[in-house]
Write a protein that binds this DNA or RNA. Sequence first.
RNA 1: GGCCCCAUCGUCUAGUGGCCUAGGACGCCGCCCUCUCACGGCGGUAACACCGGUUCGACUCCGGUUGGGGCUACCA
Length: 487
Amino acid sequence: MTVRTRIAPSPTGDPHVGTAYVALINYCFAKKNGGKFVLRIEDTDRARSTRESEAAILDSLDWMGLSWDEGPDVGGPHGPYRQSERSEIYREHVKKLLDAGNAFKCFCTPQRLEEMRAAQRASKLPSRYDGLCTSLSAEAIAKNEAQGVPYVVRLKVPAEGVCVVHDMKRGAIEIEWSSVDMQVLMKSDGMPTYHLANVVDDHLMEITHVFRGEEWLSSAPKHLLLYKYFGWEPPQLLHLPLLRNPDKSKLSKRKNPTSILFYKALGYLPDALLNFLGLLCVMPPAGEEMMDLALMTDRFTIEHVSLGGPVFDVAKLDWLNGRYIRERNDLDGFLAKVQAWGLDPVRLRRIAALAQPRIERLSDLGPLLAFFFSGRLDVTAEELRSSKLDDAALRKALQLATWGFDALSSWETGEIEAVLKGVAAAVDVKLRDVTRPFYVAITGSATSVPLYDAIEILGRDIVRERLRHALKVLGGVTSSELKEWQK
RNA sequence: GGCCCCAUCGUCUAGUGGCCUAGGACGCCGCCCUCUCACGGCGGUAACACCGGUUCGACUCCGGUUGGGGCUACCA
């Protein structure tokens, strides 16, 4: 049997370094065993999935040198590779489950479910669907459907016994069926949930090994149950540890840059970033930690995938990136990389347009534009402070802007301006008064090129990082402030 | 709270019962090189979470404790 692995990102945000890490492991295992590596887009969340995100994820994985044998862009024998285009397949499979009595229609309203969970929480019981709709008569179901009452389809779960999940590294894991929820398999909009789609697709796409994040471990019983209901052989499972922040919590963009785009924007080389991720799952040759993809593939073994959640150590990434810059490039190669990174004609033209009206000598460009070619700016609290806002209001403004920017679906000056206007209103000062500290935080100076353009050109990731830094030098935000401002 | 996973220097890790007075790498410190800095070279700092077993012998096996993490959605 041919080994087939997959990476199945959800296009609901920026391409995450964790996705690249999981992809790398799946890639290495497939290639090492002469198999295929498949890319599938899990866009069953209609509200959050976007084509822009999908494109960014594909571009980023490609940028890092991870190529797939089958996927939405290159096609393949098991397509389509985008779940939103496979609705009919899921519908058929849900029908099979329903007909066999392995799933049931649930007409409970979100309100009832919420009340149910609140009651369960109050009495300290595990949160789990109470099974009300499992006892609905055929007539009641028909009546509801005739009236057009929206419903979901839920998985029937054994009342007792244990499910044994075989993890390739952790061995047998026992989970009580009584702790497994009657998961929604098909949402009221007719789209499947991850749980259903992932099982159906992995089977149909003949995936033999599933290496995925540890966050899926506790839902593995649901997946195994589906394989059983369908009469299919489940793939081998291996749950990978989650990448961590320095404080050991799950790597999150709230605390650290997580987007591959950020690392690209800062001038990390794709080979270095990939090598760095490889150090977390491949044992390098003695005395040498530089590895290209071919070497990592060759050396990959699941025995050397460690289970402890690794901290994403930027200092080590920096060291490795430095080595790639100086050891893997002659001067011409280095120059080409510099040009590709910072002297992209389109970007440069936009920047030049901002600078031209504001300079008297070309040599004014350096100080005026340095912030476009920098990572973190070493801005101090003194520089950020303004007479119009006290520290608390200043922090609130920065935090609200961070949230506002994160929520933007499109990154362009109009939207950016709207966020800042909202922030000004929220802290009750004129726009120009709230804007000043943002100039400092983002451009490093209170006098600079237009802010909205600068923000747009710098990109979401660097802006988030600079706002985070500003917040940090101002003493950070307390959790009570966070709660208060969220309103 | 409940369920589950994990546990070697600050960080990434080697180590699969004796080879371990625990090895490497990053970071940090010192020295050398040197017009500065960086690079490079050399040296140093620093860990088996704890408590019980099993064993002639535990970093390695088992149990408990502690700590960390994940899940607990009509998100993935």
